[in-house]
Amino acid sequence: MLWLISAQLVNGIAIGMIYALMAFGLSIIKGLLNIPNFAHGALYALGAYLCYSAVSAGLPFPAGLFVAFAGAALAGLVLDRLVVRFVRAGGYLPQLITLFGAALVIEQLLLIGWGTIGLSYSPPELLRGSIDLGFTLVPRYIAFASLCSALVISGVWLLIERTRFGAWVRAGIERPEMTQSLGINVDLLLIAGMMLGAGLAGLAGGLALPLMGATSTMGGDMMAIAFVVLVIGGLGSLYGAIAAGLMVGVVQSLMTVAAPAASTAIIYLVMIVILLVRPQGLFGER
């Protein structure tokens, strides 16, 4: 039993890191553009498919992850320039319905490009098997995915907290008009934010590929969870999403031991309980 629980705990951390990547991207886009990105799930699916194609074409897996990141970021750029830009003036309801429409288009394009059958991919030789920690076995790929997510999140954290670009981004989130009047091109900043957020979604998709495969509908459920993570973490907090993502992943995985059928419903219950106690989310400010 302890064996099973610790295995699920490890699994939960890995899934939680992927949730954290998703929600972090959402959080950046929400912070800068002030919209809930309803195409985030579709970008996640796009990342998984791009990663699959890259490794099928003979590229090493890390390169596949990069392709997933870059491809989704590019899709984010296209989305922003061709679509979101024109509805920005209209309040966020038209914006998110537009993004929802874009998500429909992307998901169908994935079906056209890669076919209707779900794809699966097993991790490269080096990442198969598991590491024995004495009390439990950690599958190598799960260790790799967690490490990789942690590195990327730290990298983005450094970028936002320790660089000039990051200072602009933070300024753009806090006071867009003031930032603009200081001579910083907020429009470019918004594009960069959209690309970064979208790229993180794509990377999460690439990392999830060996764990869950690729299907065109994989994005919808993942996006719903990412929204929950964002709400639990607190909407105003850029980093709350990371802690909340880990928490949701672990809770969900442990619940599969106790009550498998309820493992997804439970995270919504967790969200409700947290909101009753702390309406602003765990790390949000009022």
């Binding site: 966020y92 419903a265 919504y268």
Partner: peptide, 25 residues
């Protein structure tokens, strides 16, 4: 209902999913 704007939207969205999973399971 006390949450406004995007927060309200995301809450109703999440509750929708909760109801979905209850019916699904």
């Amino acid at each position: 209902i006390r949450r406004t704007g995007i927060y309200f939207m995301m809450l109703t969205f999440a509750f929708n999913q909760l109801v979905f999973y209850v019916i699904y399971s």
